[in-house]
Design a protein around this nucleic acid. Sequence first.
DNA 1: TGTACATCAGTGAACGCGCGTTCACTGATGTAC
DNA 2: TGTACATCAGTGAACGCGCGTTCACTGATGTAC
Lengths: 205, 205
Amino acid sequence: MSKRGYHHGNLREALVDAALVLIEDKGPNGFTLSEAAKQAGVTPAAVYRHFAGRDDLIAEIAQQGYGIFADLMEYAFQSGQPSALASFEATGRAYLAFARKYPGHYVAMFESGISINRTPELAHVATRAADVLERAAAQLSEHIPEGHRPPPQMFSAHIWAMSHGVVELYARGSPGRKSPFPPEDLLETGIGIYLRGLGLISPDK
Amino acid sequence: MSKRGYHHGNLREALVDAALVLIEDKGPNGFTLSEAAKQAGVTPAAVYRHFAGRDDLIAEIAQQGYGIFADLMEYAFQSGQPSALASFEATGRAYLAFARKYPGHYVAMFESGISINRTPELAHVATRAADVLERAAAQLSEHIPEGHRPPPQMFSAHIWAMSHGVVELYARGSPGRKSPFPPEDLLETGIGIYLRGLGLISPDK
DNA sequence: TGTACATCAGTGAACGCGCGTTCACTGATGTAC
DNA sequence: TGTACATCAGTGAACGCGCGTTCACTGATGTAC
C-alpha cells in the first residue's frame, strides 16, 4: 500500500466516495462539501488539499463516471460483435445498466449542471462515451437499405434520448411518478420497435 | 381591476412570474425565495402572505405548468382528429413545444424534485396531462394488427421517454452538449421511425 | 358625504443556520546523512 | 542504526454571506353607519 501514506490514507478517493453517496440520495445540489468532508472523517478545510473547490470535486466525479461509462459501453459493444445489431442493442442496455449501478456518477454527469467542456480531459472522456454509441450506429447503418438510411448520428441520438428519458422518468424515479413497466423492459421493447422501424428486424419477429 | 386591490396589486402572480424567470436560468436550486421577492419588489417576508414557503411556491408553479401542459396536449390531440396517427404525432410534438415555450414551468415540473403527490390537486392535474397521451396511444392502438399490439401505456411511455430525453439532452442544453440536429427534427424523425416499427406507417414512406 | 373602525398586505429588523473558503498552525511521515 | 531536518496532509478557528423563516408593527384599503 504505497499510496496509503500520510495521515488519512487516500483522502481523495474517500471524499469522492462520500460525495457519491450524498449526491446519490440528496441530488447534485443537496450535496455539500462540508458534509462530504464530515463523512470522510475530516475537516472541510482538508478538502482543499485535493480539490480546488466544490465544483472541482463534482467535475472529478463526472469525469470518473464518463470513464466508467465509456468502458461499459465499449465492453457491451464488443460483446455483441460480430453482429452489428447485437452490439447496438447491447450498448442501449448498457446505458440503463450504468445509471442503475452508478447513480451518483450518473447524477454528476447528467444532472449536476457541470459543463462537459469544463476541462479538456472531461470533454475528451465524455466524447469517448458518445463515440462508442455512434460507432455502433454507423456499423448498424450499413445493414439498412440505401436510401432509407438516416445519418448514424441521428439514430444514435434517438437511442440516447430514449435511454435517457427512460432513466429519468421511470428508473431514477421522478418522485411520485410511477413506472407502468420495469424500465429495462420499457427500454428493451422501445429499442426493439425502433429498430423494426429502421427495417433491421423483421416485422413479425 | 377588482383583483388589484391592496398595496401591490397581485403579488401572488408577480412572485410566480419572478420565480419562473429565476428557475429558468438558474435551475430549480439556484432559485431562492429572497431573490424572487426582490424581483417582485417586495420584502422576503411578504411572500408568506401568499405561500407557505419556498417549496409551496415551486409546487404552485409545477401545478400551473401541468395545467398548461395538459391543455396543450389536449389541444394537439384534438387538432389531429379524426386521424389517430395525426393526433398521436401532434401530442408528441406538443411535448417539445411546451418545454420550449414554458421552460420555467418545465423545470419546476420535471427537474425540481417536487413530488407529484405533494397535494391531491397537483397529482390530479399531473395525471390529466399523462392521460391525454395515453388516450392518444389507446386510439392509435386499434389500428395495429392484433397480436402485434403492445399495451397502449407502453408505447405512450416510449414516446414520453423519447420526448423527455430529447428535451433534456438536446433542447434544454445540458451544458456543453452539442445537438447534432435541431431537437424538433430529432423528435419528429424518432417518432416517425418508431411508428413505422409499430406497423403504422408504410415502410417506404 | 363624512367619520370611525376593522382588515390584512407588506415592512423591517432579527434569528439561527450551514455554507464555501482562507489562514497560520501542527505534528506525523518520509528522507538525508 | 540513529538523529536532524524537510515536507506537507490535515487542523481548528474564523470570515462574510445569503438563506428561509418569525414577529410585532404600520399604514393603505375597504366597510359600516
